[in-house]
Computed example of a mutant assay.
Amino acid sequence: MAHAPPADNSRFEPFSITKHAYKIVNDQEIDLHVLIPKNVTSGKHPVIVHLHGGFFMAGDAMFPDWAAQWALDYQLEQSAIRISANYRLLPESNGLEMMSDISDLWKWVENELPSYLKEIGSDVTPDLDKVIAYGESAGGYLAIQSGLMRPDLVKAVIGAYPVTYVDSDWYAKASTDKAPFGTPQLPRNILDDYIASMKPGSIFTSAFPPARVPMGIVALQNGLFPQLMGTDDSLYPDRILAKKSGDEKVPYLYVLHGKGDTAVPCEQSVKFVKEWQAKFGEESAIAEFQEGEHGFDGEAKLEDEWMQRGLAGVTKAWMG
């Protein structure tokens, strides 16, 4: 148990932050960070579990440039405890291994978080009847997967420009038309050479961008994500959704996406939310599509009308 390294961004200033290994794989720790508002009162508080993005290959739970201010402000507004977790990344690991980490993370939240808070001397306790999942991009995929996997625990999901149709042509077929953030076609050997150099048993759980981001772009441009993730149906939210009867309990879903997104197509979020609503009812989800690129919500404010509209159902589902 150790304190997280100080972030180089003042947006984390309102929080007390500790770091903890929730899992060990091949003698390597997989960390989560617990963010508690400094001005919080003692007693029970709701929980946000946050999962970062990064093409499934990069990113870190505490990378400040990707810590959306509106989400931190929402946490403060609701006096919530935030768990920001790392997980095994491609290509060292596959999708099932990644989802194994997410499953174990939820078990840790459910079974270990209360005692952990006591261990660090905090007088706050988690209200496990009030838990939501939140993530952006690849983390949005993991948040949606979390909600589908643990509807007994997760009351609502916030997916910011989430990856949804991993088996679509966008992720599964090579094309020279894919230029996320205006990136030109990158040579495939960036990824191939890296994979060839990997040591058996090694895992990667954290990489502050721009490290490893080019590998993710190569995987996208060459349609390699299904191959790297694996083919098991449990890794594909659209396939999971298709198998549902519509009578199951599911979390409330809020998706926000920039219409000009060049990394994760906005039209896939449009389709996914419609399919969710068709299955579970019009009131089971809301989507907000705004002008902007991937990561457009970096400029968003909690008080923005569209954000308030999107979060209203989340707050209702979260707080019961």
Rank of each mutant, 00 (worst) to 15 (best):
L148Q: 13
H50W: 05
I24K: 10
F272R: 07
A71L: 08
K301M: 11
S115W: 06
G281T: 10
G230I: 06
E288T: 09
T41E: 13
Y254D: 03
G54Q: 04
K118H: 09
R188S: 11
P114S: 04
D129L: 01
C266F: 13
L224F: 15
D101E: 03
P237G: 05
A7K: 08
K274F: 15
K274S: 15
C266T: 10
Q221P: 11
I36S: 00
A287M: 13
A61N: 01
D247F: 02
N9H: 14
C266D: 09
G135S: 06
S115G: 07
G182R: 08
L32P: 00
A317W: 13
Y252V: 04
Q221I: 11
K118T: 11
V40M: 10
H52A: 04
Q308F: 02
V166L: 14
P162G: 10
H294M: 08
A242S: 14
P237R: 04
K38A: 00
I190C: 03
E303F: 03
K274A: 15
E283T: 13
V25A: 12
V166G: 00
A207G: 15
G54W: 00
G258Q: 07
T315L: 13
H33K: 00
I102L: 14
D192E: 15
A85C: 07
V218Q: 09
F15W: 02
V157P: 02
A196N: 13
M198G: 04
A80D: 07
V34C: 06
G53C: 07
P64H: 12
C266N: 11
E29K: 14
